[in-house]
Amino acid sequence: MTFELVLVLAAGLFSVGLFGALSQQSIVMIMMGIELMIGGVIVAAADFWHFLAPAAADGQVVIVVAVVAMAVEMAMGFAVTTALYRARQVDTTDMARELKG
């Protein structure tokens, strides 16, 4: 039963992260939301690996990829925020809508 519960945990983490990403105006908070979502993914990967396919290393590779993704996301996020801040002295998504179609 714990397999499904851990998956529910992963879903919960993912949804909270999603809520954060959608509702926050500040870019940093949005990044935090995304961090949580990737955390959910890691838990789910570990859970799948542990309960379904421990023989293969794929589950672990997914976790590694997820961790790398988290790192990249954090780095690029801050780079974009710095560039945006330097250019426009603003850090919320509402002010930066130049790419409007």
């Binding site: 999603l18 990403a21 959608l22 509702s23 926050q24 105006q25 870019i27 949005i30 998504t93 509402d94 930066a96 809508r97 130049e98 790419l99 409007k100 179609g101």
Partner: peptide
């Protein structure tokens, strides 16, 4: 072009 609002969160949605 309407969905392309420039607001990040709407893109996520």
């Amino acid at each position: 072009r309407r969905p392309q609002t420039g607001l990040l969160h709407q893109y996520y949605a």
